[in-house]
């Protein structure tokens, strides 16, 4: 059977607004969107890790470059800072779900400042490393991967800042807290990615 078509005079009914779309998945659009975005981010890191792989595995060059050192201790502490920020983020998210606003705000700000600490330590490390990305391929890849990660931390911090501003302005409720949840997912991704970067560049 051919279904009759909607008559063209629907153009005149545009003030009705769009029909409610059917929700055909248990996952909501925003959450699915951020997960897909993270997949593409992982692949971008993949391209940089490919460069790392070619240097260390395919060519077998020494790591770090001869005559240079990488400050593992500071980075390990910094890793702990970043990982702990994932827990505060989780706390903020759970509190948002439970409607505990003071805890949510405390969690968001704690995450933000832990992230800021991480970034500052990272910049401080750049200043004191004593070698630059222009010196050798090892430097290029070290700065490339940590820089790419630093850029992601910066984006994560921006998202957290937005969430903080909105939380301070009274946004978010147990029913509507996607503005905490989505930056949270991104922040966890940034954390997990750092663990891979840390192990590849500092430990291995």
């Amino acid at each position: 059977m051919e279904v009759g078509s909607i008559a063209a005079d629907l153009h005149e009914q545009e003030h009705h607004g769009p029909p409610t779309p059917n929700q055909s998945s248990r996952v909501d659009a925003q959450t699915l969107g951020i997960y897909l975005f993270i997949i593409s981010e992982i692949m971008l890191f993949g391209a940089f890790f490919t460069a790392y792989f070619f240097l260390r595995v395919v060519k077998g060059d020494p790591w770090p470059a001869p005559g240079t050192t990488i400050p593992v201790g500071i980075a390990a502490v910094n890793t702990a800072v970043l990982v702990s920020s994932s827990f505060t983020m989780h706390w903020a998210n759970v509190s948002a779900k439970n409607g505990n606003r003071p805890a949510m705000r405390a969690g968001l700000w704690a995450t933000f400042f832990l992230g800021l600490t991480f970034l500052s330590v990272q910049i401080n490390e750049y200043v004191h490393l004593g070698w630059s990305p222009q010196d050798h391929a090892q430097g290029t890849i070290f700065y490339g991967l940590t820089g790419l990660h630093g850029a992601h931390v910066t984006v994560g911090l921006l998202l957290l800042l937005f969430a903080n501003i909105r939380a301070n302005r009274g946004h978010f409720s147990p029913d509507a807290h996607r503005g905490v949840e989505i930056p949270g997912i991104y922040w966890h991704f940034v954390d997990v990615m750092w663990i891979f970067v840390f192990f590849s560049l500092y430990i291995l």
């Binding site: 490919t50 460069a51 070619f54 395919v58 060519k59 470059a65 990305p133 222009q134 391929a137 890849i141």
Partner: peptide, 14 residues
Amino acid sequence: TNFFDVAKGGDILM
């Protein structure tokens, strides 16, 4: 930087 500068350890096939 030296991603593709062979003299400094870069890899052009990459």
